[in-house]
Amino acid sequence: MDILVLGGGGQVGTELQAYAWPEGVRVHAPDRAGLDITDEAAIARIIAERDWAAVINTAAYTAVDKAESEVAAAWRLNALAPAILSATTNSKKIPLVHVSTDYVFDGSSSGSYETDAPIGPTSVYGASKAAGEMAVRTANPRHAIVRTAWVVSPHRGNFVKTMLRLAGERDQLSVVDDQHGCPTSAADLAAGLARIALRLAEDTDAPTGTFHYVNAGVTTWHGFAEGIVAGNARRGGRRIPVKGIPTSAYPTPARRPVNSELSTKSLTVAYGLTPRPWHEALDDILDRLVGPAH
């Protein structure tokens, strides 16, 4: 069984390659340099190369603030590429698993967002990802769109690695405390995507549609930073204070959702997946980055 992973150089693509796939499953994961997924001819060639059991698209333009000025680049990767990919996979009857984001919501609701909640992106990044979702829905009926949020790992640049670096350089951190969401381990997300892809590959009646995958538990960026600093301290790092600040004190080009809490109920019902708490997932990441706790 051959599975194609797009975005092989990113956090989730890296973890999909490290995932313990069943015997006989071969994963092919070209990075951006190896495959331009906005090139329709290039996508057609790679899809024609093999009898793919499933395609998992983790590739995206994720520079949220830069997207406000690089609008065309964001839309090419986040909207045009999924349109090309979904149409091409559908022509070969290949199921498509596509990763999306909490930024498709405006963040103004209280409580957790269910998968059928109305979307209302407030940034270029969010709008381009919402368009990518629509392309997948309309072009390939055998799809699973998996929204996630606050993804972290030992790879590439992310919030955990930034907080660890700053904790080693500063005597105090100031982190936004009025944005709420669910931290998500790229490794855990990759495992969920793998299980969804295998089910779609093996069962033509497998559930399709839109799902959410985030680790369990809701916090703020400030609470997440405190968890990182505390976990680092248990591994011999510096224990420094983390001050909470309002979003207004840390202006950014792109507006962030105030509430990014995603409900994973539909994922549990459809695929039997129940993500673990984010604290546990964070410990695993810190073990890999810093070492075991003392």
Score class of each variant (00 low, 15 high):
Tyr271Lys: 03
Ser260Phe: 01
Val269Phe: 09
Thr162Val: 08
Val5Asn: 12
Gln172Ile: 00
Glu261Ile: 00
Ala81Ser: 13
Ala191Gln: 14
Ala59Gln: 05
Thr268Ile: 00
Thr14Ile: 02
Arg45Gln: 14
Ser263Asn: 12
His98Ile: 00
Asp283Thr: 06
Val214Asn: 10
Val25Phe: 08
Leu164Asp: 08
Arg276Glu: 15
Arg234Gln: 15
Tyr19Asp: 13
Val99Thr: 14
Val99Arg: 09
Met163Asn: 08
Asp31Lys: 12
Gly181Glu: 10
Arg195Tyr: 03
Ser174Gly: 04
Gln172Trp: 02
Ala54Asp: 13
Ala230Lys: 13
Asp177Tyr: 00
Arg239Cys: 01
Pro22Ala: 02
Asp284Gln: 10
Ala135Tyr: 06
His98Leu: 01
Ala249Arg: 12
Asp205His: 06
Trp278Met: 02
Val160Pro: 11
Glu133Thr: 02
Ala87Gly: 15
Thr210Gly: 04
Asp106Gly: 08
Ser260Cys: 07
Pro292Ile: 00
Pro257Arg: 07
Pro207Ala: 06
Ala127Thr: 03
Ala18His: 14
Asn78Ala: 09
Pro118Tyr: 07
Thr138Lys: 13
Gly120Pro: 08
His98Asn: 14
Arg288Met: 06
Val229Lys: 08
Val151His: 05
Ser185Met: 05
Glu226Tyr: 00
Asp178His: 06
Arg170Phe: 05
Ala67His: 03
Pro154Glu: 13
Ala194Lys: 09
Thr89Ser: 13
Thr58Met: 08
Pro183Lys: 03
Ser109Gln: 12
Gly107Gln: 05
Ile119Trp: 01
Val25Pro: 11
Thr58Cys: 15
Tyr250Thr: 01
His180Trp: 14
Pro241Tyr: 08
Gly111Met: 04
Thr274Leu: 05
Ala33Gln: 12
Gly223Gln: 06
Ala63Asp: 15
Asp205Leu: 05
Asp284Cys: 00
Val25Tyr: 13
Asp36His: 04
Thr264Lys: 04
Asp39Gly: 07
Arg255Cys: 02
Arg276Phe: 00
Arg137Phe: 04
Ala130Met: 04
Gln172Cys: 08
Gly7Trp: 05
Ile145Met: 06
Leu189Thr: 07
Leu35Ser: 10
Pro257Asn: 10
Thr115Phe: 07
Pro275Phe: 00
Thr122Ala: 09
Pro257Glu: 07
Pro253Thr: 04
Gly236Cys: 06
Asp177Thr: 01
